[in-house]
Amino acid sequence: MEGALIPLNRLAIGKLGRVKYLTALGEAKRRMLDLGLVADTPVEALRKSLSGDPTAYRIRGAVIALRSEEASKILVEID
């Protein structure tokens, strides 16, 4: 699976991915960029909430929870 592009919400817990592309538009995209989610940023999936959504990710030293809708718009390459 190395090198394959997957949406971030499908990144398994404990795995690392690198941001390749954002499919979000407008404000949603703006917010992702503001989190520092630019190309090649490493993201680690940390934990899922009780019912499986949202998921907490480690992004540039911070722990950020994203709902699956948002995470699905971030394409990552598995490290």
């Binding site: 979000a24 907490a56 950020i64």
Partner: peptide
């Protein structure tokens, strides 16, 4: 629709 949800969990 629900807006985007980004929640920081600070240390």
């Amino acid at each position: 629709l629900t807006s985007s949800f980004i929640l920081e969990m600070p240390p």
